[in-house]
Every structure is written in C-alpha cells, then in structure tokens.
Write a protein that binds this DNA or RNA. Structure first.
Length: 580
RNA sequence: CGGGACGUGGCGAAGCUUGGUAUCGCGCCUGCUUUGGGAGCAGGAUGCCGCUGGUUCAAAUCCAGUCGUCCCGACCA
C-alpha cells in the first residue's frame, strides 16, 4: 500500500460538503457521506473513497493481527459458489430470499456467499482427516452479499459488505469451549484497539432454533442500535433482549371464585385495569398470532403487564409467526380468555410462565362485553403447562442475580461469536480419524466481524458536530498538515519540509497545501478526522513555531520548529499506544 | 412484504395546488481582490425536471403505469 499512505489533499479523489443530506438520520451516515468516505451505488451497496478504504485497511490490519495471535490461518473462500454446496448443507432450502441465487451460463444454480460455513467445510474436509490436524482456525476477510429486506444507515446495515469471518474446528466440545474464550478475548482486544472498547459489551445471544448452543454478540451501546439489550446493573448479566429469560414474581393472592362481570367496551388492558381498579399485573391478557406458514392461530396468555418475545415464540413454534389481524371472525378480540375458549382448527394455546403461581386475575370471558374476575390459572385450566415466552421488562428481575435491576439499552451488533457444533460438518460429511482409528465429526465455532459496520460504529462513537474523530489506530492518516497561505514561500518551504520529514519518520501524512481559506481548510480537516493536526501559517512562522492540535481538542499548543518533527512523532506514538 | 415520503445541473432545495421562457444556494471553470473557522466582486459552463405512455395547441406541473431512493414496521446466518 504505497499510494495513499501520504497524500496531498488537493490530489485526493473525493470531496466534502457542508449540507446534511436530506435522507440521512444517523450521525455516522451523515458524516461518512459529508466527509467523502463513501458513495451510495444502490440500495445497501457502497463504494469507498480513499479515506474510507484506508480506514478499512487499518481495521483489517488489526483483525489480522488479533486472529493471527490466536493461531488463525488466513485463507480465501469464493464469493460466488455452486449451489450444490448449499444443497449439501441443507441451507439452499432453509435460507430465505436473503441468499442471492442466480444461474450461470449453463443454467447451473449459483449463490453469492452470505456466510461461508459451506465453503470452509468444503475446503477443510479433505485437509484435516487426522486427529493430529486438530484443533485449527482459519479466517478470511471477504465480501459477503445478503439481500437484506431493508438496508439502512449508511454502512450500518448494507447488502454487500466486507467481513472478517473465522471458523475453528475441534475434536471436542470442551476444546471448542476453551478456544471460544480465547476468541472472545481477541474480540475484546479488537474493539479496544479500534477505540470503542469502552462502548462495546458482549451479550448473550439467541442461538436460534438449534438450541443449546452458546453464542454471544458484541454490541456497541448506542441509541441508534437496532437491538434491545437487557443489562443488569447489579451483576454482570448482559443479554440480547430476545435471548433474555423473563423472571417474574407474583404477589400472593386471595382465592376467590370465578365470576363473570360486564365490561362493556373495555378492550385494552389499560382500560380494564382502570375499570376494575387493579394493576395490569392483576390481569391475564391474550395475544393472538398466526403462523406464517399456515395462518393457523396461536393464542398466548400472558400477564397483562408483559409483552411477547417473538424470537422465543418462533423458537417454541419451530417457525415464524406474525401478529394476527385485530379483527377476525374466530375470536372475540378484546375479550379472549382461557375459560370457555373455542379454538379454530389447528390453533394452539400457550401459557406464559408469568401466570404460574398467579391467581385472582381479571381476564376475558370469551364473550363480547364480559370479563371474568377471580381467574386462577392452576385451578381454572386443566392440564395447564407453561412456556417461557415473555419479553424481559425494564426494571425487571435479573435472571442471574434475582434483583430488580434490569435496564434496557439499545445496541448495534458489531461482532458475533458462536459455538456452532457439528451442524455443518455432519451435514457435509466432514470426518477425521481419532487416535483409535474411529471416524469422528469435528466440532465447529464461527466468529464474525463486519468491517464496514465497524467503521460506522467507530465514527458513531467518536465524533463531534464537525466530523469524525478517528482513533489513531484506525485513522486514515496519522497527521494532517494544514499549510495556510501556502503561496507564501516560507510557509510552502516549511510545510513541505515537515511533510517530507514526517514521511521519512514513518508517519502517515495528509498534506493540505491548497490555496483555500483557513476556515474551508479546517472544516475539511474536521470532516477527515485525522487525530493530529499540524498548522503552518505566516502567523505561526512569525513566532517560530508550528501549531499542534488534536482533533478532539484535548491538546492545542505551539511547538518550536527545531523540535517539531520529534515532538510530532512522539505524540503519534503516544496516541497509538492509547489504543495498542 | 405492509405503511409513508421523495425523485428537478456534482450536492442541497424552490417551482407542481391554478399547465405557458428552468429558479435559488453550495460546488465547478476564468480573472482580480482576499486569507486563523466553509471569503468578495465580475464573467462562465453544466438540466431527456427518474423512465414510459396518456390528456393538451402546450406538461417539471394533470392522469396512468413503471423503476429507483429514503423513513417506519415486518425480516435479519
């Protein structure tokens, strides 16, 4: 990477502008556009200008170093591959339309890789046939294509993106577990080195329908996040809300008989609680879903103050479901209750665990305009069985320490590590011979980080109103020289000497010697976010100094021309170490 | 896949209701003057007004279709 390591701003492709693009909502999206880092090509598809590409390369360097440090071997898998591989694993049928499918000239089915488990098993199954080959980890930095239903937020959520994906292979689950910890630590290191260590947490993630596997997501805490996180303020419990167990305690109740009461026009839990002068916790509500596949109804009874966690619902049903239409002929909506319920064909009923040990509740009477009071599930519903299907609420009980200290926060997923198990190795017939000569199926882990999303997250977490403030470790350049009035001979000479000597000292330098006004120059510098700025102007030269400023404004000082080079080099080194 | 909004020089917008010479700011080019937080003056270039069809003497403007983009929701190995 020769060109671009040092660069004159006037020669660099790209431009910066001050108008906020009208259709941007997210700060990092606005700033990466305004700063000339990215250009939108199509829905969720971007090109990178030199500054964007250079940040990507810096991040990739960190990724390589951390993957190599835990024994990773870099490989490269194809972007386009024959569908036969995906048919082998079963995902040709299992995955929806986010998998980009196409035909080649001979009519053969092809796919664009959205993840590379198939390709990596294909690569490794011939190369690791002996227990002596295990364990090992391979990784790549490669383009992924996912035909997302909805791209958004610049680089936050795109259809085509660069990803570091790693795959480890083990002879046992225990060994995978040990390696997984190392990988977790490597990820912690990566985010620290990218300057967002203080904003990224790992949370327990939903492992989908496979169940029983361990997975964690690394989340940048930010209001723009698409995920809700349940974080305990009393202990170290942290979970994606969709994977968090909801634990509730029900207050003791007096046993009272089931009595039908008229409740004309009372349809919502809020109205019902007010009407009966009770809290929402003393009600039992029905939530109606329909299976996506068959439209069959799913009736969920849950404590009135809680909501349904749709991820848990999907896992329980073994398929997706959507909220049923408000009005339908099968149910008296607003008055649905467990007693006297007439189920249409194919419908199922689920009782949430929040109803366990609850009693004397108010619930629908399955008759327009009536509710029951005194409903006690264990008494009034024969054969009742409970499932865990509620969303953990703000202020709810922590499932780990039991204190009512759960806070909900938003997060952006920047990394995901997953103990896959044998799903792919099994399906694709990858085996090795163990010490006894017995055929065994290796156990896999996978580990992913999206490079572009990480760029956006670093920007999101490090910025001010004027532009990004890149950490030294990922900044497109380390030092930005502003030569104000470069047509002045002395300014020209001094700034050029500084430019040359910094290059010789191994510093990555961006040099702005354009003949533009200082304000214009500084605005561009702010948008480019280079962490250290050296300003040379007739004013500074009259004092015999160069002005040194950090982008975050923590340092602003004059340094003597003589020692300028050494001082800048030292400061760059110091700022690098902050994120080493 | 539902709901909403928007497509007008490179960028950001006005014009559309009520059809009639393509408008403003930024940027770009030339020259002069400026120069520590997006300078001033003068001159100049750049438009299938997303696309297709319809109505009309006449369409950026009205109608239909279509493609694209963005936002909200659903979805997200």
């Amino acid at each position: 990477m020769k060109a671009g390591v040092h660069m004159k701003l006037g020669e660099m492709l790209g431009f910066r502008f001050k108008e906020t693009p009208s259709d941007c909502q997210i700060a990092s999206h606005i700033l990466t556009l305004r700063g000339g880092y990215i250009k939108n090509v199509g829905n969720g598809i971007f090109s990178l200008y030199p500054p964007g590409k250079r940040i990507a390369m810096k991040i990739e360097k960190i990724l390589r170093e951390e993957m190599d440090a835990i024994g990773g071997q870099e490989i490269l898998l194809p972007v386009a591959m024959p569908a036969s591989l995906w048919k082998e694993s079963g995902r040709w049928d299992a995955v929806g339309s986010e998998l980009m499918r196409m035909k080649d000239r001979s009519g053969a089915d092809m796919v664009l890789g959205m993840t590379h488990e198939e390709a990596v098993v294909h690569l490794c199954r011939d190369a690791a046939q002996s227990y002596q080959n295990y364990p090992f980890m391979v990784y790549q930095i490669q383009t992924k294509f996912r035909d997302e239903p909805r791209a958004r937020g610049g680089l936050i959520r795109v259809r085509e993106f660069t990803m570091k994906d790693g795959y480890s292979f083990h002879a046992s689950f225990e060994d995978l577990g040990e390696y997984y910890k190392k990988c977790h630590q490597a990820y912690v290191n990566i985010f620290r080195r990218c300057g967002i260590g203080n904003r990224v947490v790992s949370v327990k993630a939903d492992s989908g329908m496979m169940g029983g596997k361990i997975a964690e997501e690394f989340m940048l805490l930010a209001d723009i996040g698409e995920d809700s996180l349940a974080i305990c303020t009393a202990c170290d419990f942290r979970s994606n809300m969709e994977a968090a167990e909801c634990v509730v305690e029900n207050a003791p109740y007096e046993d009272s008989p089931l009595v039908k009461i008229p409740t004309p026009g009372i349809k919502t839990i809020e109205d019902l609680a007010q009407f009966c002068d009770i809290t929402a916790e003393q009600t039992c509500k029905a939530v109606l879903y329909q299976r996506n596949a068959t439209d069959e109804f799913v009736v969920i009874f849950i404590r009135g103050d809680l909501e349904v966690n749709e991820t848990k619902l999907s896992n329980l049903l073994g398929g997706e479901a959507h909220p049923a239409a408000d009005a339908n002929e099968s149910f008296p909506c607003g008055f649905i209750g467990p007693v006297g319920l007439n189920l249409p064909k194919g419908a199922v009923v689920i009782y949430d665990r929040s109803l366990q040990n609850a009693g004397n509740l108010v619930t629908g009477a399955c008759e327009e305009g009536y509710h029951y009071k005194g409903f006690t599930p264990a008494r009034d519903v024969p054969w009742i069985a409970y499932s865990e299907i509620a969303k953990i609420p703000e202020g709810g009980l922590c499932p780990q320490c039991g204190k009512a200290a759960i806070r909900l926060k938003r997060g952006v997923e920047v990394g995901h590590i997953f103990q896959l198990g044998t799903k792919y190795t099994q399906a694709m017939g990858m085996t090795y011979l163990d010490r006894d000569g017995t055929e065994q199926v290796p156990v896999m882990g996978c580990y992913g980080i999206g490079v572009g999303r990480l760029i956006a997250c670093v920007c999101e977490a490090n910025r001010d109103d004027y532009g990004p403030i890149w950490p030294m470790s990922v900044a497109p350049w380390q030092v930005h020289i502003c030569a104000i009035r470069a047509e002045n001979e002395e300014v020209n000479q001094t700034s050029n000497e500084l430019y040359t000597s910094l290059q010789k000292a191994g510093i990555e330098v961006l040099f702005d010697d354009r003949k533009v006004s200082p304000g214009f120059m500084f605005s561009d510098a702010d948008l480019l976010g280079v962490p250290l700025r050296a300003i040379v102007s007739p004013k500074t030269l009259a004092r015999g100094v160069v002005e040194l400023k950090t982008r975050d404004k923590s340092i602003q000082k004059d340094i003597a021309l003589d020692g300028a080079l050494d001082e800048i080099v030292a400061l760059v080194k110091e700022m690098m170490e902050g994120t080493a």
